[in-house]
């Protein structure tokens, strides 16, 4: 109920809805449940990938690692072997920055997922910037991952614009609590980060069906670029995705984590990366407060050991219906 008092003191309403604030996320969840010494496992995408490979968690194939400037010019020849394209990522990047998705080679350069061309010189400059630490946390020198480009599941064909949609699941104490799918738009330049202009669409944890999306703070039923309907899509392999997310959280041992998963046409769900400081926009996408769900899980004395049990807990504890 929106009483007059609530209008006067708007935070009362947010509190009642259990909306997690940035300060609370940091103070009560990240600082409390994420031991700092485990951060490198997720901040360094190469380490994450190695951990995942060792544990048998499916990930996009790694084509190569670039660690020094002089490796860059020799790269073109090696990359010629991947006509279907590839992805360049800073190993320690954050917020999707510095990621370059190449769909193929053209004369004198490459084609980006947006369709724009990038000259070989610009490509080398971009890679050199990554190595210098331009996109890394704290500006420390970085390395570059070159990975398989995801050929995403056709179900998303109509609802993403030049890029790979990914599924972000927040996992708390090993239990998935909230999920959304992030759809790239023209504005986001093919990237799936909400603050870069991608669309966030909430997902019902029980059924794996999408809810209505939010884009730039407004509700959305259709993709702004493709016109495809984004609500009520059934996400394939949903239970696998939940299991994978929970397993990834176990892998790194962080208590509050965001797991990003992509759906490959042939390989199914692949873990893309993990984030020890997952953003709050997922609440807007789901139109539900995270805090109320987190509190329920915090109240549990013991979290079940098996992943199946945890997902059952998630599905019973969490009531994903729109408020």
């Amino acid at each position: 109920m929106t009483s007059r008092l609530d209008r006067l003191l708007p935070w009362r309403r947010l509190l009642a809805l259990g909306i997690l604030s940035m300060n609370r996320r940091n103070a009560d969840y990240i600082l409390r449940y994420n031991p700092r010494h485990l951060y490198p496992l997720v901040d360094d995408k190469l380490k994450t990938k190695q951990l995942a490979l060792a544990a048998g968690v499916p990930v996009p194939e790694l084509y190569g690692v670039v660690e020094t400037q002089y490796q860059i010019p020799a790269l073109h020849e090696q990359l010629g072997r991947y006509p279907e394209g590839f992805v360049v990522k800073p190993t320690r990047g954050s917020g999707g920055e510095g990621i370059l998705v190449i769909t193929g080679e053209v004369k004198g350069g490459y084609r980006k997922s947006s369709g724009a061309l990038i000259s070989k010189e610009e490509f080398e400059f971009h890679l050199s910037n990554i190595l210098s630490g331009l996109y890394s946390l704290g500006g420390i020198p970085d390395s570059i991952l070159i990975e398989q480009r995801i050929d995403f599941d056709p179900i998303f064909q109509n609802v993403s614009y030049q890029g790979v949609p990914d599924i972000r699941t927040i996992v708390f104490r090993g239990i998935p609590v909230m999920a959304m799918i992030r759809l790239p738009t023209r504005i986001s330049d093919g990237r799936a980060n909400l603050h870069q202009g991608a669309i966030g669409v909430g997902i019902d944890l029980k059924s794996g069906c999408t809810l209505a999306g939010t884009w730039k703070g407004a509700l959305l039923e259709q993709h702004p670029d493709t016109g495809g309907g984004i609500a009520k899509l059934k996400i394939p392999h949903w239970d696998t995705i939940l299991r994978l997310s929970a397993a990834c959280a176990d892998l790194v041992g962080l208590g509050y984590i965001g797991v990003d998963i992509v759906l490959d046409r042939s390989k199914g769900p692949l873990m893309l990366e993990m984030n020890a400081r997952p953003g709050l926009a997922i609440q807007i996408a789901n139109r539900t407060g995270l805090h109320q769900r987190l509190k329920k899980i915090e109240a549990l004395d013991k979290v079940p050991a098996s992943i199946e049990d945890r997902i059952r807990v998630a599905k019973t504890l969490i009531d994903s219906k729109i408020i």
């Binding site: 935070w11 309403r13 947010l14 509190l15 604030s21 300060n23 703070g217 807007i284």
Partner: peptide, 15 residues
């Protein structure tokens, strides 16, 4: 751990 003033704007859809 409370809300930031800017978050009132950010989460305005809830309001």
């Amino acid at each position: 751990a409370g809300y930031r003033l800017t978050e009132l704007w950010r989460f305005r859809t809830f309001l």
